[in-house]
Design a binder for these strands. Structure first.
Length: 271
DNA sequence: AGATGTCCCTGGAAGC
DNA sequence: TGCTTCCAGGGACATC
């Protein structure tokens, strides 16, 4: 379940190594979340300039356009000089003169999408509505607090929506709200400026910590040890329904918001 | 227009 | 033991 920290760690693991490569062939497997959007032959001969990240998308900049990679919920990328024959869940192989970049994605919520450039309609559709990056100055506490005042949905759903800040997935959302002492069901416009500022800091703190641990997560993942690492992360509330809150001992409660599980401490997150 | 619900997909766990 | 059902997740799209 890659969230922003793992996507970033993934990026760092191959961006430098693939820069300067020339694409020989893009081989696609079973259909993914969205179609590639072009004939793979068009990418042959493209030179890879670099790989950046926007939210949970990886942007591979090439001489022939931008290739977007999304890991969905079960995707992982591997880049190596050579790889064994594709398995049943390997749905994209980008073969270059420097190695093969492979998307492994059992649940196929991921995607590889080609955009001629970042102004193209498909790029605008996928990237245009994204909010500020949480770990940059673009994510401003005061602006965040003001924006919350315009939203009536629950704070949990507003954070997940991705237009006020990107990269806060279901797991880190529960964790950040716990850290900030805010109940997930609280209406966003009823979060005071002071509490919004705390939440802003909590989001950064949770993501930065996960990013720092993401390295070990990814190594475990690529070593096929099984878990993706969220369970090594020692979550404060996520996945701990019924277990005692580490701060006050009250059993952690689990509810559903928008078809998704939310975890919180009813005492530490009183409102 | 903003909020909410639905769907895509598959493997693993839980329930019968 | 073997079947069925449920659940996890991000995000586009449909509906209210």
């Amino acid at each position: 379940m890659p969230e922003l920290p793992e996507v970033e760690v993934t990026r760092r693991s191959f961006a430098d190594r693939i820069a300067g490569a020339t694409v020989q062939q893009l081989a696609m497997g079973k259909p993914l979340r969205w179609p590639l959007g072009c004939d793979p032959v068009q990418l042959q001969g493209a030179r890879v300039h670099g790989v950046s990240r926007r939210g949970k998308y990886l942007l591979m900049h090439t001489s022939h356009g931008v290739l977007l990679w999304h890991l969905g919920m079960s995707g992982s990328l591997q880049f190596a000089p050579a790889l064994p024959a594709r398995g049943v869940h390997d749905h994209a192989d980008l073969r270059t003169d420097l190695g093969v970049l492979r998307l492994h994605d059992p649940r196929r919520f991921g995607a590889v999408v080609w955009c001629p450039d970042l102004d193209a309609p498909v790029a605008r559709k996928l990237l245009g509505g994204l909010g500020p990056e949480p770990l940059t100055d673009a994510f401003d506490a005061q602006a965040f607090a003001r924006a919350l005042k315009l939203k009536r949905a629950s704070i949990k759903q507003v954070l997940l929506a991705g237009d006020l800040v990107v990269g806060v997935g279901n797991i880190y959302c529960s964790e950040a709200l716990f850290l900030a002492g805010i109940r997930p069901t609280c209406r966003a416009d009823r979060v005071s400026v002071a509490r919004a500022v705390r939440l802003h800091a909590a989001i950064r703190s949770v993501l930065e910590r996960a990013l720092a641990m993401g390295g070990s997560t990814l190594r475990d993942f690529s070593n096929a040890q099984g878990q993706t690492g969220y369970f090594q992360m020692d979550a404060a509330v996520y996945g701990r329904a019924g277990e005692p809150c580490r701060a006050c001992g009250t059993p952690i409660r689990q509810i559903r918001q928008g078809q998704r599980s939310t975890f919180f401490c009813p005492v530490c997150q009183a409102r």
